[in-house]
Design a protein around this nucleic acid. Structure first.
Length: 577
DNA sequence: GCCGTTTTCGGCCCGACTGTTTTCAGTCG
């Protein structure tokens, strides 16, 4: 079982326990454990083998035993029993807005409802309104919620969500009375996929702003409206929240709405230990006095912490690091000197080498590898060896024109065949300055096979970088089922760099493995995979991904001074394994 | 069910919004 599967089991236990009416702190413990497992970056099976399950935060004796049973026998009696007590289909009801564990349990016990279909039938027949705590309005909200659920978009990739969010923020900032407005929530933390959009605004009088918000032309449904907080549904089932506080309370508001929820819980626990109470409005003392904060920095300072960058606010150790003065100094765009993975018209790119080079120079890069596809990838118009040799002259000619301002490298993105062999012979690879080896096809091979395949490519001393290692496409296509323990071990052994592909549909290597890889001393390479000049700006998404992985500049070879990077590339081929 | 620079037992974040159970519970972030 992989981490995701184990995590999903504990989330299921949490959902069912909550409906069963188990004390809330037990269900929170299951959720916390699920989260931890998902964020491990290491294989839970490997940790199990080493007998180190108790080292996982939020995993104690009881949960460790459950993991052990799960990984040893493939099933979990505790869950099987739970599913006898609580109809498993009830967890589907929790997805409906306004239905939580209490209502789900009530529908089941008092109304005999266990499935979404039964719920909808009962609601439309007017049979919900007689149940405890249910009136006509609640029944109508359930129907509306069921419809919203059907319309609701899947999570958006950050590349789709960010431009939408920017548009809304600009609209908000133009409203009279709005002194500040920001996108908060998971978008501000730059998660790779976004569920809802959350905006915060500072204003003296919130009413006209809330009014404008719920009457925005894109609003399809008003899910809630109040003085400080309103919630709407926009086109495509996208849910959007707006929170408003006066300017002097904007700091606590922005902090609160940025989240994550888990980060905020830790922060509030910390506040409590200091005899303080943190909310979106202020920090208050036991005597009732309160202090307001216009910016976030003040909020963190009041708790004895340096400001924590939003990308780190996931309760993955950032508060402990902040307390110890050991927050990473995260990568910023100006740190990046090189892009080792861009395409040109020699394969499936839209721009010439000269155009890509000019765009790279404009953006302050010092090194650019033209890494067109090898011949094997038919759809992408990959280069035959002959074409590759022809291209060499053009790169050299553009290099002459660029002079010292930009160093162009002869590169290729070489296809890793289904058996792990590469698309070009070793002699051809050896002629190149940079070899990025990537999986594009047969991604559904079984774990053992696809892992071996990738490892074979990594062990080729001509390979410098493994491009978008998992091959995932966000938000829907899962990556290859790789044995990450072996992949990371092989990367450490061979010294090959793992790519963080900045394209917002990839962001691959995933942040949890990127963080672990960096901790293991594995070099990482942050590249755009640009197929046109303006796609060089997609690097922003990659930077966010790297920041979420706690990466510091020196862990990314693209930040190295050009001489150091070139020396590293030249020495790669001579490595013995 | 987890966890410990106050604790191995007794805690475990805080407030807005909604609808209904006329004083509060449920849901959400």
């Amino acid at each position: 079982m992989n981490n995701e599967e184990v995590a999903a089991i504990f989330e299921r236990i949490a959902d069912l326990s909550e409906i069963k009416g188990e004390i809330i702190y037990k269900t929170l413990a299951y959720r916390k454990a699920a989260d931890s497992i998902r964020n491990l970056g290491a294989d839970v099976e490997a940790i199990h083998r080493e007998g180190k399950l108790l080292d996982i935060p939020g995993v104690g004796k009881a949960i460790a035993e459950k993991i052990d049973e799960l990984l040893t026998t493939g099933k979990l009696n505790f869950l099987l029993k739970l599913e006898q007590e609580v109809p498993p289909t009830l967890v589907d009801l929790l997805k409906v807005p306004d239905i939580g564990p209490k209502k789900a349990a009530m529908f089941w016990k008092k109304g005999g409802i266990t499935t979404l279909a039964e719920l909808e039938a009962a609601a439309r027949a007017g049979k919900l309104r007689g149940l405890p705590g249910m009136g006509e309005k609640s029944e109508a909200r359930i129907i509306s919620g069921l419809e919203a659920l059907a319309r609701r978009s899947k999570r958006l990739s950050i590349g789709v969500a960010l431009p939408i969010a920017i548009r809304w923020v600009e609209w908000l900032r133009k409203l009279p009375g709005v002194e500040q407005a920001e996108a908060a929530g998971s978008l501000r933390r730059r998660k790779i996929t976004i569920g809802d959009l959350d905006f915060v605004a500072a204003a003296r009088d919130p009413k006209p702003i809330m009014d404008a918000f719920i009457h925005h032309p894109e609003v399809q449904r008003i899910a809630g409206q109040g003085e400080n907080k309103s919630s709407i549904e926009a086109a495509g089932g996208l849910n959007i929240q707006l929170w408003i506080q006066p300017p002097e309370r904007f700091g606590t508001l922005l902090q609160f709405v940025t989240g994550s929820k888990e980060h905020n819980v830790r922060l509030r626990e910390l506040a409590q230990k200091k005899g303080l109470s943190l909310s979106e409005q202020s920090i208050s003392r036991a005597d009732g006095s309160e202090q307001t904060y216009a910016d976030e920095k003040g909020v963190y300072a009041a708790l004895g912490l340096p400001w924590i960058p939003p990308e780190l606010r996931e309760d993955r150790g950032e508060i402990a690091a902040a307390l110890a003065g050991k927050l990473p100094h995260l990568l910023v765009r100006s740190d990046l000197k090189a892009d080792l993975h861009v395409h040109s018209t020699w394969s499936d790119g839209a721009a010439t080498i000269a155009e890509m080079a000019a765009a790279a120079r404009e953006r302050g890069l010092k090194v650019l590898a033209i890494s067109d596809h090898s011949g094997g990838l038919g759809v992408a118009g990959g280069m035959s060896v002959e074409k590759l040799h022809e291209r060499r002259a053009e790169i050299e000619s553009v290099q002459e024109k660029m002079g010292d301002s930009l160093r162009l490298l002869q590169g290729a993105e070489v296809e890793i065949h289904a058996d792990g062999s590469l698309d070009y012979e070793d002699e051809v690879l050896a002629e190149l300055d940079v070899v990025v080896a990537s999986l594009h096809s047969s991604l559904r091979q079984p774990r053992e096979q696809i892992t071996e395949r990738l490892l074979r490519a990594m062990r080729n001393p001509n390979v410098d970088v493994i491009g978008h290692p998992s091959g995932r496409l966000l938000p829907n296509r899962e990556g290859a089922d790789l044995d990450w323990e072996r992949v990371l071990a092989a990367a450490r052994e061979t010294g090959v760099a793992l790519e963080i592909n900045a394209h917002p549909a990839r962001l691959d290597l995933d942040e949890v493995y990127a963080r672990r890889a960096a901790e293991m001393g594995i070099p990482l390479s942050l590249n755009t995979d640009a197929h046109a000049p303006d796609q060089l700006d997609l690097i922003e998404y990659g930077i966010s991904a790297a920041r979420r992985a706690w990466l510091e500049p020196e862990q990314i070879i693209n930040t190295w001074p050009p001489e150091k990077l070139l020396a590293w590339l030249q020495n790669r081929g001579r490595k013995t394994h």
